[in-house]
């Protein structure tokens, strides 16, 4: 494992911890898209079915369990927690995420490494992860006034994607048979979705001002 991959995993973990902290500390999930969180829960469950069949390392296994556990906990909080669920911005979180699920599943049926149950689900999870942030970005843009922890959450998620791209470049240059084209192309698409957010993030950082997304 190279330093970029590790940095990517850590920023991914931090993003999830920031989100859990926000929900726990403020008892509020305002500004957070339940649609995006549900998509991530589907992504993790679909991808990490290999927990039952393949063992890579203790690190991988623990991280997979943490990701599945945290994503399910977040969805549970937003849907069922007595206090937290009342703070959910249902009216602005209207992205029709089922279309994303359907589209990604159809794509995975046709574009995959191997036509097996697990490989198709793996490709599906890669495609779905690439677009899962969309409802969150739409919600950020619509609600205008975004709290700091939500901004940090999206920032760390974006940083995770950026580090993974560096990781793939590094692996491509150093490993003779590294060719993970499905993951790399989907990863590039996913990172591109953050470009706009990052642009405004850095402007607000430079001006030492609160992040404002244009309507």
């Amino acid at each position: 494992m190279n330093i970029f991959r590790f940095a990517g995993d850590m920023t991914h973990l931090i993003s999830i911890l920031v989100l859990l902290l926000k929900i726990y500390a403020t008892k509020s999930c305002s500004g957070i898209s339940l649609k995006t969180q549900e998509l991530y829960a589907i992504v993790f469950v679909a991808r990490y079915l290999d927990l039952f069949t393949d063992f890579i390392s203790v690190y991988n296994t623990v991280m997979k369990l943490v990701f599945i556990g945290c994503s399910l906990a977040i969805v549970w909080c937003m849907r069922l927690h007595r206090v937290v669920r009342r703070t959910y911005n249902k009216d602005v979180d209207t992205f029709r995420h089922y279309f994303l699920v359907l589209g990604c599943f159809l794509l995975a049926l046709f574009v995959h490494e191997k036509f097996t149950f697990q490989e198709v689900l793996w490709a599906f999870s890669i495609y779905l992860e690439a677009v899962a942030i969309l409802p969150q970005l739409v919600l950020l843009q619509r609600s205008g006034n975004v709290d700091n922890l939500t901004v940090q959450y999206v920032f760390f998620l974006g940083a995770y994607r950026a580090f993974y791209i560096l990781n793939w470049i590094y692996r491509y240059l150093t490993e003779p048979h590294f060719g993970r084209w499905i993951a790399s192309v989907a990863g590039l698409v996913q990172t591109a979705l953050y470009a706009d957010f990052f642009y405004y993030y850095f402007i607000s950082w430079k001006n030492n001002a609160k992040l404002q997304l244009p309507a």
Partner: peptide, 10 residues
């Protein structure tokens, strides 16, 4: 046909 590598990333 080459065997699919195990997915070693998260």
């Amino acid at each position: 046909e080459p065997e699919t590598e195990a997915h070693d990333e998260l």
